[in-house]
Design a protein around this nucleic acid. Structure first.
Length: 123
DNA sequence: GTTCTCACA
DNA sequence: TGTGAGGA
């Protein structure tokens, strides 16, 4: 399973491919990178090379955007997700449980932010 | 032909 | 966000 993760993290896709796969504009894709949502590598001559992992994230971002979240909120979600993934270097199973919880919180948050200001942090 | 950065409508 | 300029 590590093999897949490795390939999945290999950055080999030019922005044009990502555009087609995500149906977003280059502008948006670059913007999300600027916002720290995806981290493409910059191999030959300053060209952004995205990985399947990035595609996944971008697709997810698109999804969140579609559900009414703004960039800053998405940034927050990913920030927290990363923290949860990195804080437990001793237990992978716990990380998985945490990941599930985080996802649940995200969904709850999406539903709850419509009426009031869940803007800050309820979790 | 494709992508990059910067800047402005 | 879109788009155009100017370069690689």
């Amino acid at each position: 399973m590590k093999e897949k993760d490795l390939r999945r993290s290999l950055s080999v896709l030019p922005i044009g491919t990502v555009m087609k796969l995500t149906s977003l504009t280059a502008r948006q894709i670059r913007y999300y990178e600027e916002q720290g949502l995806v981290f493409p590598e910059r191999n030959d001559g300053n060209r952004r090379m995205y990985s399947l992992n990035d595609i996944d994230v971008i697709l997810e971002i698109k999804d969140y955007l579609d559900e009414g979240l703004n960039i800053s909120k998405i940034q927050d979600i990913y920030k927290k997700r990363k923290e949860s993934n990195e804080q437990n270097g001793n237990s992978k199973e716990l990380s998985d449980q945490e990941a599930r919880k985080i996802l649940s919180d995200e969904l709850l948050n999406i539903g709850g932010l419509n009426s009031k200001d869940a803007e800050n942090n309820s979790f």
